[in-house]
Design a protein around this nucleic acid. Structure first.
Length: 487
DNA sequence: CCCATCACG
DNA sequence: ACGTACGTGATGGGC
């Protein structure tokens, strides 16, 4: 049940929680350097003991929660200190630890037979491809070694090499894709890579884990304090990176099922980060587009290229919209779109001319980050940057991270609020529903079949009304018997 | 233990 | 002159 907590720390903390008075505990935590915010504790001493007291209420119930709460508390106080930090800890992050605990305990059902069948097919493909590749190259080597592969491709076969890595030639997907017409072995390698990834990262581990459990369910650990932006992460196994993009990858999703008599519901926020961009920047074109329910990428294309060209350039606009949130540069945009850096530069310049309030808003974030040393999300979570001691290259990276953190972190704030509200709803009303997974902007539920539609509408309603922004929050919802049907 | 690679949002 | 699109975790090779 305790999956990520350090067990020594946990045992110590739980024991203390049961046997010590509050004052003793908080002093003891400090003495043992269990709380690493000694510097801020002078002004925050009351806050600290109040917070610990609250955390300890849960200790008898479940030591794991205590640990998560403690972890969150430390994180929050380190991040900000003072009342604002504790407000967020108490109002959002502490209840969220309980929400996550419920999800971790619940797990998700896996149909092992689906995976076993797929495993046989993939194993056969891998064996065939291995044989073909070795004979095509005229030599036997380890296909999983980029080092050995690089030597074969770029020395033995004499293909023209592009970029290099620290340790030799790059053989990543982008490189291989550029060479796919140069030699018959390249398409085989690309296929091999896809099959091997599925086999080693998903098929085998998921079968092993599901066989551990009497109900064939698998249980992830959600890390609440592991990211720089406030997002969750998921590990052992990571259920936030189950394949979705290719037909083969979707076979993995088909193995995540609703048990008999139940359904899975998937609800994801549509373009939540772009909606936050519209909200924060107050740009009239963006705000209007969302308020009128228009296709945001098409509207961007119209604004950038005019009505006549918009339809054929919608994809460019889409890439630019995404790139914006990452602080894109001309180099990467040109690589992604397959255009010259000059063209990319022009598109970026035109974007900021077309959306001046976005440009102003972005520079505002960067100015704030440089002056204050941090940026804040919608719910005032902070991320700190040390611009002062940074090299020019690092400064540029910090600028991109500052901007991105506002959107990624604020989106994370929103879905945390929704999850807490839905979790409370499920518990207090005794709904025949369980929240199973969060994948950043998406929630997966398992519910009784007969109430699936009704519950789904209620969850959608919570998610879309969780906060009132300058633009509506929209979601898309799907009900199915397996995860593969939720897109 | 680091690197390269690749899966996701 | 030159280089940077953000945030994660798992795997296998190789030192």
């Amino acid at each position: 049940m305790v999956r990520y907590a350090d067990t020594m720390v946990l045992a110590w903390l739980t024991d203390s929680a049961r046997s010590l008075s509050m004052d003793n505990l908080s002093q003891s935590l400090l003495n043992h350097e269990m709380i690493h915010f000694k510097d801020t504790v002078k002004k925050g001493e009351n806050f600290a003991s109040v917070a610990i007291e609250d955390a300890c209420k849960y200790a008898g119930e479940d030591a794991y929660i205590t640990f998560q709460l403690y972890d969150v508390l430390r994180e929050q106080l380190l991040l900000k200190g003072g009342q604002e930090a504790l407000d967020e800890a108490f109002n959002v992050e502490f209840p969220f630890a309980i929400t996550l605990l419920g999800m971790e305990k619940e797990g998700i059902a896996v149909d092992t037979a689906v995976l076993e069948l797929f495993k046989k097919e993939v194993a056969l493909e891998i064996a065939t491809l291995t044989e073909q590749i070795h004979s095509t190259c005229g030599t036997v080597f380890n296909l999983n070694s980029p080092k050995q592969l690089g030597v074969i491709l770029f020395e033995t076969l004499g293909l023209a090499h592009g970029k290099k890595t620290k340790t030799g030639y790059s053989t990543d997907e982008q490189v291989l894709d550029g060479l796919k017409d140069e030699h018959a072995v390249i398409p085989m390698l690309l296929q091999y890579r896809e099959y091997h990834k599925l086999y080693s990262t998903y098929i085998e581990p998921l079968i092993a884990l599901s066989q551990n459990d009497p109900a064939s369910r698998i249980y992830t650990s959600f890390i609440q304090t592991g990211t720089a932006t406030g997002r969750l992460s998921s590990k052992n196994p990571n259920l936030q990176n189950i394949p979705v993009k290719t037909a083969l990858g979707m076979r993995i999703r088909e193995a995540f099922v609703a048990p008999k008599g139940k359904k899975l519901i998937g609800i994801d926020y549509s373009q939540i980060e772009l909606r936050l961009l519209a909200h924060f920047s107050e740009d009239s074109v963006l705000v209007n587009a969302f308020n009128e329910g228009h296709d945001i990428h098409m509207q961007t294309a119209i604004a950038l290229f005019g009505e006549a060209e918009a339809a054929q350039k919608r994809n460019i606009a889409k890439t630019v919209n995404f790139g914006l949130l990452y602080g894109m540069g001309q180099k990467k945009l040109s690589d992604t779109l397959g255009i010259t850096t000059k063209e990319a530069k022009e598109i970026i310049e035109r974007y900021f001319e077309t959306f001046p309030s976005v440009k102003g808003y972005f520079s505002g974030i960067v100015v704030h980050a440089k002056e204050m040393g941090y940026v804040e999300t919608l719910l005032h979570r902070r991320r700190y940057f040390d611009f002062a001691s940074a090299t020019p290259m690092l400064k540029a990276a910090y600028e991109r991270e500052s901007v991105n953190t506002v959107f990624q972190g604020s989106a994370s704030d929103l879905i945390k609020l929704s999850m807490n509200k839905i979790d409370t709803m499920i518990r207090t009303e005794g709904l025949r529903a369980r929240m199973l997974l969060q994948i950043h902007d998406e929630l997966i539920f398992e519910v009784d079949e007969d109430v699936a539609e009704v519950y789904a509408s209620r969850f959608v309603e919570v998610m879309e009304s969780i906060l009132e922004l300058r633009v509506p929050l929209k979601t898309s919802m799907h009900i199915g018997n397996h995860w593969g049907e939720l897109k």
